[in-house]
Design a binder for these strands. Structure first.
Lengths: 237, 237
DNA sequence: CTTAGATATTGTAAAATATACAACAACAAT
DNA sequence: ATTGTTGTTGTATATTTTACAATATCTAAG
């Protein structure tokens, strides 16, 4: 097998490895994907998923963190590997294999940032993504599927929410992700296994009964995960 | 970002992309992984997961199929992408990023093949994998986790079984995968949603009541999947 | 031929979960 | 105070899961 090697490595783009970082945020009932406008060819001035080539001494998770940090200044959050794409035709200038990672961020933390770059970056609801550069539409769809899968198994939806949130905020994430409604009273019961702390604080500026704010009891959650006596599974349907 | 490029591509091993193909088979109540003895350095004569460099004009699924076929002559079965590994130190001779794919095969179909190559290949139960070359232990563990995950959602366990099987065969796959026992009577009920055809045939050469043989109604299953009125979820615990 | 040993298969009651929806609570606006 | 709106709790019912009894069907031993 090994004698079949016939790779052309004479120029940079003949064979390269990149990483795309899909940054998801939640606002106004919608899950959004952060897109950047490309500054160079190919696909100059078109929307794309932020990414970069992997550095020679860099592990994949490091590259993902770096790309996230360079773009948003966010550090120290979980990054999840999704699929890897290697179609020989996916990059017009040569063979670029790319791994998709995704991060779930709190959009509130990025308001100021978003304004300052408003002409080069854009949040787009995941169900309204425009045509993107390269095969980035395929990557977006595939990665969102991975995200949805993880949402049913792990309590990662909290990463999209501010520290203090209402039960309904959480429900909106699931309803938007799965394009499906749940009964409010019953959705609440699905959360019984997740350690939530009910705060002595309420939602403000709403013109109806304000909802209680909760926060995730992360310590308790880690303990439960460590003990393996935890299993969240959100049954869809 | 793009001006930070400083990749050394002067020799083949400075930056390369490979694919490892994890072939799982089921026999005697155990899920096995197919290992090959390396024929060249590094790790010459040590066990490894079969893999190869990706060809320049080859998509990832193609490379996975090729590796599977070269090794086993098996064609036309599903291949599943698992995780991609890119630690800069994972290959002693240079930077090799690798994607793991896995396939579920019928070991019966490979008996003859396995004998003819018996000194260079080996089936090892997934819970008894010896020390492997490179970071292949990590890859094996990670990929088996992906497999387990898929086992809870998709009816892929059938790919490991001969066309005709008993309910107990199926149960053994799950029990070995999750290292956990199920009540036989109840396990049977979990399968209600899967379209199985009960054959007029029974298990032979057993010294007790022989079990009925079943086969998967693949046509019906595809229809159900197409209609999206299908959801298999095997609750662990 | 009969019986013991083993596992297969079906059935069923009890327990646990999920669902539908009623009832009430707490706020803003009028 | 009243209405509108959504939050929250409670509860009866339906559904699913679990535990386990009962019976079936084979081999092997006597």
């Amino acid at each position: 097998m090994e004698n079949k090697r016939d790779h052309k490595l004479d120029n940079f783009f003949s064979y390269s490895f990149s990483l795309d970082c899909l940054i998801f945020g939640f606002q106004d009932g919608k899950i959004n994907l952060l897109l950047v406008k490309r500054e160079s060819e190919p696909f100059k001035d078109q929307w794309a998923i932020p990414g970069d080539l992997i550095y020679p001494d860099e592990d994949l998770p490091n590259a993902a963190s770096r790309i996230l940090k360079d773009l948003t200044s966010i550090e120290g959050i979980d990054l999840h590997q999704a699929q890897t794409f290697g179609n020989p035709a996916r990059h017009p200038q040569g063979r670029v294999i790319t791994s998709a990672y995704f991060a779930l961020v709190r959009m509130d933390d990025l308001q100021e940032y978003a304004r300052s770059w408003s002409d080069r970056i854009q949040w787009m609801p995941i169900y309204s993504i425009p045509r993107l550069s390269f095969d980035h539409n395929e990557i977006a769809i595939s990665t969102f599927e991975v995200l949805k899968q993880k949402l049913t198994i792990y309590p990662i939806a909290f990463d999209l929410l501010p520290e203090k949130f209402t039960i309904n905020n959480l429900q909106e994430i699931y309803e938007y992700a799965f394009q499906q409604d749940w009964d409010k009273a019953n959705f609440r019961k699905k959360l019984k296994k997740i350690p939530l702390i009910k705060l002595n604080e309420k939602q403000k500026n709403v013109k109806h009964r304000p909802a209680s704010l909760f926060k995730l009891d992360s310590e308790q959650l880690s303990k439960m995960i460590k003990r393996e006596d935890y299993s969240f599974s959100l049954k869809i349907n």
